[in-house]
Each structure stands twice: as C-alpha cells, then as structure tokens.
C-alpha cells in the first residue's frame, strides 16, 4: 500500500490550511503531531475524499484517489475528530448500518460486527442506544466502525481525545495490534500518544510538514540542548523571560525547571536527554506551551 501526496494544497479563501505537501507513505504507523489549527484535520479530510484539494493530487498505488472513488474508499477506514452517531440506533445496528455503507455482505457484516464489538470491549453495550454511551465508549464504537472493512488505510483524527489514561494505553495497544499490513495515519497533539507507537513522526505547523522521521531522528533534529535546574522563587521570572521552558515543577523554595537552550542557562543546570515533548515545544514555541502542560 502506498499513498503519495503530490504538492497537496488546500485553501479556504485566501487562507492556506494545507500548503504544498509532497510525501509518500507506505505501511506502518505515522504520527501527525501539531498544534491547533496546524491543518491536520484538513489534510486527513482530503485523504478521505471528503474535501477536494485546491491544488495537487493524492495517489493510491499510482491512481488518483478521487478518480478511484468507491474503489479507494473500499480500502479506507476513517475516525473523524468530531463526529456523531444516529442517537436512536443501538451500537449493534449502527455498526451493521456502516457495514452496509461499506458494501459488506450482510452475513459477513454480522460476523465482523460481533468480532469488533468484542475487540473494542463493547460487548456489554452492544444493545445500548448510541445516545446513552459515554464519550470513551463512543470513541471505541468509532474505532470499530473504522475497522469494519478491515481497511488497508486507516486514518484516525485525534483518536485519543477525551480518553482517560487507561483507555489511552488500551487504545495504543490496539493500534499496535492493528498496525501490521496497514497504513495508519493518526493525528494528535498529545505527544505521548505517538512517542511509542509511531514508526514515523510528522511535525505539522501552518499547513506544512516541518520535520519528519523516527522518534530518534526527530529528537536529534533540534540544534539546542535540554537542561534541568532548580532555581529560587525570585529567579523564575527572569529565566522564563529569556528561555524556553518545557516544564516547571514548583517546590517550597522555588522550582525545578526544564529549559531548552543552546548554552547553559545557569550555573546549577545539568544537561539531560531531550524528549519528544521538548522537540514539540522547541518547534511550536509559546503556542505549544498549553499543549505541553495538558500532558501532565
């Protein structure tokens, strides 16, 4: 399976949401990391034939996906970032309906639905109406619907949003299980989601892919160092003004700071290994700060 983005661009009026992206993806897990408004959803919608590019093309094994039409979507599973269900349908009916939309024969569909309901852990909720499900259960139903046709291309837009830490870990494991023989593109702004499962990480900002590579490559890509130091209360403000702070732990006497800087920021500072979070912060600057804090 190969997806090739060729000069892919989407403009909304004069605003460019996706800016001339050219890339090739093959089987494996791709983690699309970016702040709000980076263009992740727009990119994914084009990959799902929901939006037509303003410029450029997307090729699946060499054929234009918009020309392949249904044949392309047959290979596709999509979990949108924001989506709803038919509130009065039960989980079981809902999945059967989506299976029908995916052109799966009824007998096969029934079997697939049963399997997936148990795989995503919704066995006890299968007869419940969609409107009665919790947020986490809805997302699991969403993943189940994406998997119905055993898609070779799986596109997941912030699949872990709103999941509690347990669910998130379960979900990561599920993705790892599914990742064989498949192309998975998942977006998130939660760094730890992709840290473990993505074979390749893409950092996206303002419509372009700023950096891409394995976790190690991405971490190695920043030309600065990461430092840790404890400082007194009255020093905090000055350091915050002059350096990028990736983390701050407040203590009775002052705080322990994690600082991104080429040079040693203070006498007591010790160099440490950079993490993906530090990289995220480095590239996305102040904007990323609130994102980084969300992780704690």
């Amino acid at each position: 399976m190969e997806l090739k983005l060729d000069d892919l661009t989407k403009k909304f009026g004069s605003f460019t949401a996706v800016d001339h992206i050219s890339l090739t993806m093959t089987n494996g897990v791709y983690g699309l990391l970016g702040i709000n408004g980076a263009g992740k959803t727009t990119l994914m919608r084009m990959l799902c034939t929901l939006l037509r590019p303003t410029e450029g093309n997307i090729y699946c094994n060499g054929s234009d996906i918009f020309e392949m039409d249904g044949e392309y979507r047959r290979l596709l599973g999509y979990l949108p970032q924001e989506f709803g269900f038919y509130p009065e349908f039960t989980v079981h009916d809902y999945l059967l309906y989506i299976a029908t939309l995916k052109g799966i024969r009824p007998a096969v569909a029934r079997k697939r639905v049963r399997e997936l309901i148990s795989q995503v852990g919704l066995t006890n909720a299968a007869g419940k109406k969609m409107k009665k499900l919790s947020g986490g259960m809805k997302r699991r139903a969403g993943i189940a619907q994406a998997m119905l046709n055993d898609p070779k291309i799986l596109i997941l837009d912030e699949p872990t949003a709103g999941l509690d830490p347990n669910e998130r870990i379960r979900f990561r494991n599920l993705i790892s299980e599914l990742s064989e023989e498949r192309l998975i593109l998942l977006s998130t702004h939660i760094v730890s989601d992709v840290e473990y499962i993505a074979n390749e990480i893409w950092l996206m900002g303002e419509g372009t892919i700023l950096h891409r590579g394995s976790l190690e490559e991405i971490i190695a890509s920043i030309p600065e160092n990461v430092w840790e130091c404890s400082v007194k209360k009255d020093q905090i403000a000055a350091i915050m003004r002059n350096y990028k702070i990736s983390n701050m732990k407040t203590e009775p006497e002052g705080a322990t700071l994690r600082i991104i800087s080429r040079d040693r920021p203070a006498e007591s500072a010790k160099r440490t290994e950079a993490s993906l979070e530090d990289v995220f912060l480095y590239y996305f600057g102040e904007n990323a700060k609130s994102e980084a804090e969300e992780i704690d």
Partner: peptide, 13 residues
C-alpha cells in the same frame, strides 16, 4: 447528527 464525515468516507457513501 454530525455523522456525515463517516457517511461520505465509506465505499458506497
């Protein structure tokens, strides 16, 4: 129902 993204991304959608 905001179900349109899934609807239109299916094979027969």
């Amino acid at each position: 129902c905001r179900a349109e993204s899934i609807f239109f991304s299916t094979r027969l959608g």
